[in-house]
Amino acid sequence: MKPAAVLDKKYLILMGIAMAVIAFAPLPDRRTEPETVTVQIQAESYAFSPGIVEVEKGDTVVLELTSMDVVHGLYLDGYDLSVTSDPGQTARLTFLADETGSFRLRCSTTCGALHPFMIGQLKVGRNDLLWRALAAMLVIGIYGVWSVRRASD
């Protein structure tokens, strides 16, 4: 018996629909009361600590950056904001977290060899892109398993 094709039109359309649903299905907003969140971030040896900062959408965020060794900077992807801190001298960055998603904090002042890889994360609310993408990957994986099963039946 000739095995079924890995991709045939019928199932491709089905996959397309599944992908479209995953990509565009509306998700409920995670509602929270806006707060002012102050986060102290220490910058030292090519790392921000804490390396991951989580806030909710609508929060007013105050990032207090303190360098612990040499002059570091902090550039926030997505918000296009930056601030510089000399060791021991705390610098503040205040902004309204109105964009959801995961944004990288990057050192913006050359601080040594690994400076380009000094990266932290600011997570605002739920990372929809990540969850949708993971779901899509899972669906692709399941489709693969299923097409194997279909062939060996």
Binding site: F48, A113, I119
Partner: peptide, 14 residues
């Protein structure tokens, strides 16, 4: 190592 938020890993690799 390079893109994550973990400084110890970066130093270990360096």
């Amino acid at each position: 190592v390079m893109l994550g938020p973990w400084g110890e890993l970066k130093l270990a690799a360096y």
